[in-house]
């Protein structure tokens, strides 16, 4: 089992060694509604924790996606260009946005695990 962590802004990061795969949570995709476009960063770009890493667009809104931890972009999900719907259909799978090489795995500690995130969601409604 890989380790998935969440932010309060509903990004997730799935850790695989020193690589983190970033996307938005199932809750986030439901809130956004039909995703129509994802603006992805350039490979090689570096982010600090909390920097804007991508933009996800529905028909009526655009939302920034922030880097849960700092790192350098090593891969982006170019499949989203043709099928942005996978963000809705499979947010934690085919709907991933980008992969980064973690700069400091210590930053992960500040993020929520699955259970904590589920509790966090309960506080929202």
């Amino acid at each position: 089992m890989t380790d998935v962590r969440y932010t309060k802004d509903h990004e997730y990061i799935r850790i695989n060694g020193d690589i983190g795969e970033i996307g938005i949570s199932d809750y986030a995709q439901k809130q956004l509604g039909d995703v129509v476009f994802v603006e992805l960063p350039q490979i090689g770009a570096s982010f600090g924790k909390g920097d804007q890493a991508a933009v996800v667009e529905s028909v009526k809104a655009a939302s920034e996606v922030y880097a849960p931890v700092s790192g350098e972009v090593v891969e982006v999900n170019s499949g989203l260009e043709a099928t942005p719907a996978s963000v809705n259909e499979d947010p934690l799978g085919k709907g991933w946005f980008l992969k980064i090489k973690l700069a400091d795995s210590g930053e992960l500690g500040a993020l929520m695990d699955e259970a904590a995130y589920r509790d966090f969601l309960k506080t929202l409604d």
Binding site: D34, V36, F37, E57, V59, P84, A85
Partner: peptide, 10 residues
């Protein structure tokens, strides 16, 4: 009838 704006944007 209502138009599919998601389709138009995707």
């Amino acid at each position: 009838r209502r138009l599919d704006e998601t389709r138009a944007a995707r």
